[in-house]
Design a binder for these strands. Structure first.
Lengths: 285, 285
DNA sequence: TTCTCCCGATACCGTGCGGGTATCGTCGCC
DNA sequence: GGCGACGATACCCGCACGGTATCGGGAGAA
């Protein structure tokens, strides 16, 4: 009789329909049927009367419905009171501008109502978004970068594409290689940024035959450079691009990894919770 | 934050010692440490302060300890109230005399306090202990027997042995075969008992060369026949035998299976619960 | 009567979690 | 400084809980 199963039962008791209840619970009907049956076995009595006409509550089911609702409410109270006793903590989350994910922060705030969440957005010049400087507790960013003293957990991998003007001769290709970019000016990250990060994103420009392009500090700047200078830039393939630009897959690059990162050592429970939620959210979609 | 984990935390909070708490919970220390850590992650705050001196509760931990205790108590109430609403049911359990298992009935009564448990013991002449006649809801017995219309679940398998007087010439053997019992009188089950059951336990006596022995109806009778008549009888090897008798393994017999049995079709939740508890108890030892 | 649709039950599969054992790291203590 | 105690970690395994595919039975319509 765990709380999860009780929640299942409450849903079925309210919908009086296994399929609808399953939808409400974000699962499919068979596991729900099984869970309810197991609950009946554990409690030793029928809770629902299944008939072709529909599903109805037995007396025991009615009782359990009332009791379960109050018990679940109590459980929520417990969560809130413990959070209150722990004191309102603050977590500072750093994220690259392109990655701002309202969903994640929403879920986190929902689970930790008393906690203050500060968001810090950064540009392309600091892949740790302030993590190394101690400005944030946890960062949502992209690997690879210099991660000495930093722990990362991969959430997703994205192939890299080349951003081109739609009127670029290469814009029609299905996919490109480094050779196709020979003698093209590639946007550059400024000197002094994380070397691993810079080496990765400068990509073809670090090869011998390529000419350095304009130095950019933000995604916006990068895009503008492509538009105005006819340079080429690299982005993960998932980005939504403004009108007039197109992204073509680039074969010769390893994919970029969307990661959640935190300082090594003992992360606080709040940071662990953040990582756990992020991993859960990105596990399937 | 399921109820099981809360129970773990209460144990640790009371013992202030992971090892002792684990013992109390009938598990080992590592899973307990992990579960508590996961609970801390989920709640987003430290619950325990681990120091070389020992384990201490943080403010959040103290709060959770109080709240968890009342929540667990409420959960027990829910169980009781649902059982009450279902009405005091009655379950009749049939068991062969040799298999009477106080442990199983104790656990069952403990989980279903309002339920009336009737025990029916039988002799060797009815392997279903009244299940086929509808006298019991669930039976703890031995396979094989005629199980048409009956569902069984194996709990354990026991090799078969021959019961002999200790002064029998064969008593010193490590193990025996059917040939060793040629021309010995073997105890018999009365005619009219379940044919599959009878064929199994009459064992060697059904072979051509063996002479029929005395007809017995109970384990006690069987033992007495061996003692007084010098006949041989078959029993599972686990039985404790009275003074003057010994059990020698019999090679040529398939093992007997200790099973829980119930009428086919839709077993009631109470029967399902009984089966589940039995399976759990016999899973390891 | 029979066909079809709806809906809960069942079968089967893959993954993740919660158990386990073995071992480590670290801090007091003799 | 070696040792013992104790919590943390690493790793393995079985089961439970998700999923998809399919069954079965009853109701309503043709």
């Amino acid at each position: 009789m765990d709380l999860r199963t009780l929640n299942y039962f409450v849903a079925v008791a309210e919908e009086l329909h296994f399929g609808r209840a399953a939808t409400r619970l974000h699962l499919t009907q068979p596991p729900l049927s099984r869970a309810i049956k197991q609950l009946e076995t554990e409690l030793g009595c029928l809770l629902l009367r299944r008939s072709p006409a529909g599903v109805a509550l037995t007396p025991a089911g009615t009782t359990l419905y009332d009791e379960a609702k109050t018990l679940l409410a109590r459980a929520d109270q417990v969560r809130a009171r413990v959070a209150a006793a722990a004191g309102a903590d603050t977590v500072t989350v750093g994220t690259l501008a392109e990655l701002a994910d309202a969903r994640l922060v929403t879920v986190f705030r929902d689970r930790h109502p008393g906690v203050n969440v500060r968001i810090r957005e950064a540009d392309l010049t600091d892949p740790t978004v302030g993590l190394r400087a101690g400005l944030v507790d946890v960062a949502l960013t992209r690997a690879p970068f210099d991660d000495t003293g930093i722990v990362t957990r991969v959430l997703r991998t994205d192939p890299i594409g080349v951003v081109l003007r739609t009127d670029d001769p290469l814009a029609g290709c299905d996919c490109l290689g480094f050779d196709d970019l020979a003698d093209r000016r590639c946007v550059q990250l400024p000197e002094g940024t994380d070397p691993v990060w810079r080496a990765f994103w400068n990509g073809p420009a670090d090869g011998s035959r390529h000419r350095d392009g304009p130095v950019v500090r933000t995604v916006h700047e990068c895009v503008q450079s492509v538009l105005w200078n006819g340079a080429v830039g690299l982005t993960p393939m998932i980005d939504t691009l403004p009108e007039g630009l197109i992204s073509v897959p680039l074969n010769d690059m390893p994919p970029s990894r969307l990661v959640v990162a935190w300082a090594g050592g003992n992360p606080s429970p709040l940071v662990r919770s953040f990582v756990q939620i992020a991993a859960g959210l990105y596990r399937t979609g």
